[in-house]
Amino acid sequence: MKKSVFLGALTVAGMAAGVASAATVDDVKARGTLNCGVATGVPGFAAPDANGEWQGFDVAVCRAVAAAVLGDPTAVEFVPTTGKTRFTALASGEIDMLARNTTWTFSRDVDLKFTFVGVNYYDGQGFMIPKELGVTSAKELDGATVCIQTGTTTELNLADFFRVNNMSYEPVPIETNAEAQQQYLAGACDVYTTDASGLAATRATFETPADHVILPEIISKEPLGPLVRHGDDEWGDIVRWTLNALIAAEEYGVTSANLSDMASAATDNPEINRLLGTEGNLGEMLGLDADWAVKALGVAGNYGEIFEKNIGESTPIGLARGLNAQWTNGGLLYAPPFR
C-alpha cells in the first residue's frame, strides 16, 4: 500500500516535470501546420474572402512564417480570436502565434508573459462619427455613446482620454468589429473608436463611406505586431526574423518579381545574399533551411507589396504608408541588419 502511494507520487512528479518545455517549432513541424490566431474579420487585415481563403495584412505574416518553417504558405490553421479570447488562446498553446492587430504594451509583454517580436503596423486610436452630427474634434464628444471593443487597450485609452478631458461618456462594450459596425450604423452609438487603421477598414465596407468622418485626434500610440508566448526564444526568433525579412526585403529592393533571380545566384549586395541564403548560414542558425527567407518572400512579396495589396492606397481601405514607410523614406520601419 505505502509503496503504491510512493510510486504514484513519483509518477506525478515525473509527469509534472515533463510538461514544461517542448519547443514550439518542433510542435509545428510535427503537426505540419501552423496555428495562427487572427481577428474574426477586419477587412484588409484578416478576413476570409469569397472562397473562404483568409486574406489580409496580418494573415500574410502567418503565411510567411508557415512558408519559412514548413515551406508551404497554405499550411496554416487560422484561428479567429476576439479581443477577449486571443491571449488565453496564445497562453494555453491553442495557437502558436498571434497576428491580430494587437498592441505592444509593457504589461502585455512583461506581466501577461508574451513576447512581441516586432511591429508590422504603427497605429493610433481614433474616433469615427457620422458627418451629420457635425462634430469636428474629439474634445466635443462630451456625453456621447461610444462603441468600444471590449478587452482591448483602446478601452483603457478611451477611459483615460475622457477622464483627463473631464468629459463623460457611455461605453457600449461589444465583442467583434462586425457587431460594432451593426450598432454604429443603426445609431445605437454615436461614435466608434478603435485603431485608426481598423476604422478606415470598417468605413471602407460601408455603403456610403463619405457620410462618416474620422476625427483628427489620435489619442494613443498603438504599435501592432505579432506575438508569441514568453520563454520559447527559438520560436520567437523565427517569427521575429521572418517579419524582419519582409521589411528588409523592401529596403533592399527584393520583390516577388526579382526574387527568383536574386535567390538563384549571389548578387553583389552581401546583405541580400545573407538574407536569401546564397551566402552565410543564417537559416541554419534559426534551425531552418538556407532559403527560409526566399520561401517567406515567395508568398506575397516584401512588406511594401503586402501593404499595397491589402490595405494600401489602391485598395478600398486606402491607407497611406505614413509612419509605416521605410526609415529611408521617413517612416519607422527599420529592420536590424542580417548579419
Binding site: V12, A16, A17, V19, A20, A91, K113, H230, G231
Partner: peptide, 12 residues
C-alpha cells in the same frame, strides 16, 4: 500540481 508547475514555468 501540473497546473501550478506550468503556471510557475510561465512565471505566473
Amino acid at each position: 500540481n501540473n497546473t501550478l508547475a506550468n503556471l510557475n514555468t510561465l512565471g505566473k
